[in-house]
């Protein structure tokens, strides 16, 4: 078993096949999308493969330390220039192929016109905590 992160970008990924912003979808299209996402998560839980499913708000701030006794420095948000993460799903699956298959399903959530968005998702393997015992 291995854990993978399926990463969804607001910005920074190549354009989706069905690339219409959500605010131009009809209410029915939005509802269908939400339903699809909920069903996807429920199905993953049912197969025993779901670890977590999270969405992020779009605003973000860069922060860094600025020396002892000084408040941290903040900057940004860097509008329109930076990669922007929208959310993620963590799965625990038997193979890389299965991770790709699930990412494909998630990417195909319905969007404008009820057609699959087919957006680009990033699939990232987790580093495990422990090495295999047998060298």
């Amino acid at each position: 078993m291995a854990k993978y992160l399926l990463l969804k970008h607001y910005r920074g990924a190549p354009a989706a096949v069905n690339d219409v912003p959500m605010d131009r979808w009809t209410p029915e299209e939005l509802a269908a999308h939400v339903r699809y996402m909920n069903d996807f998560a429920a199905r993953l839980e049912e197969t025993g493969e779901l670890v977590e499913h999270q969405a992020l708000r779009p605003e973000g701030t860069f922060v860094r330390g600025d020396g002892e006794g000084r408040p941290p420095v903040t900057d940004g948000p860097f509008a329109e220039t930076k990669d922007l993460i929208a959310g993620w799903t963590v799965i625990d699956v038997d193979s890389y192929e299965r991770a790709l298959e699930l990412a494909g399903e998630l990417s195909a959530a319905p969007g404008a016109g009820g057609e699959p968005i087919n957006e680009w998702l990033e699939v990232r393997p987790f580093l495990t905590c422990l090495p295999t015992v047998i060298e």
Binding site: K3, E45, E46, T47, G48, E49, L50, V51, D92, C129
Partner: peptide, 15 residues
Amino acid sequence: AYLVPEATMAQRISR
């Protein structure tokens, strides 16, 4: 032990 939610493991076992 496998760092997954209990609900997920319960489903994996019942499946």
